[in-house]
Design a protein around this nucleic acid. Structure first.
Lengths: 110, 110
DNA sequence: GCAGGCAGTATCAAAAAAGTCAGTACTTCT
DNA sequence: AGAAGTACTGACTTTTTTGATACTGCCTGC
């Protein structure tokens, strides 16, 4: 959870609870990409144009600690890390679908 | 639209288009409160605990200029201003519902 | 033995959002 | 007359997030 949202959740709106988890510039986009299945760090970085490894790393850390994303470390050679939607994250699917649908209908041609 | 999202929409995800409009700490909460019907500035400020008039004003301005919220000025005495969901804003209802539902199921008891 | 991929981290700087505090112009209520 | 409500705005500061750039350690393939 980002710090910004700590105060906001005191307004006792249900929506604030959700935004505390998925607010921020990149989180919805990261979750959206994980919808297609398990992804590796560099896969995510390549498919999300414009995100820096630093920001991706921070966001993934928060998503994992909030229980939305699960992280698996494979001690193979070379070691690899796999990110996927956790149980809680899968409950976000209706939100992700609604957001994507809206975005497709309103392409923001500016 | 907040500036943060200008670069992000270049990643060509549908979800990025949506987040450019509803991203930010307070927008979802403001829209959520407008779901119940037309609200006045001070009504919103009172019902959204923790928001300052300054921030509310900024956010409403962006929501109006993005076409999500409509603003009506009544030249009555005393003058009053009414905010409500515009046509485009009403298309966000599925998103708002999904976000509220998730928030109700996961109250963030921290 | 060097390039290149994987999964990040470190450091610093910039940008953006949000907050603080005060004030405006009007009106009705007391 | 004075308080208090409505609907903000402006100037300034702080906090928070995000970005740029470089770098690490490990391994594989050439």
């Amino acid at each position: 959870m980002q710090k910004t949202y700590e105060q906001m959740i005191r307004c006792h709106c249900a929506s604030a609870n959700t935004m505390a988890l998925i607010g921020g510039k990149w989180k919805i986009i990261i979750l959206d990409h994980l919808r297609d299945g398990t992804q590796h760090f560099n896969e995510l970085q390549r498919s999300i144009a414009g995100i820096t490894p630093h920001t991706l790393s921070q966001n993934l850390k928060e998503l994992v600690s909030d229980g939305l994303v699960s992280r698996q470390d494979f001690k193979t050679t070379p070691p690899s890390t796999a990110y996927s939607l956790d149980t809680l994250g899968k409950e976000l699917l209706p939100i992700l679908t609604a957001i994507t649908t809206f975005g497709e209908n309103h392409p923001l041609i500016k």
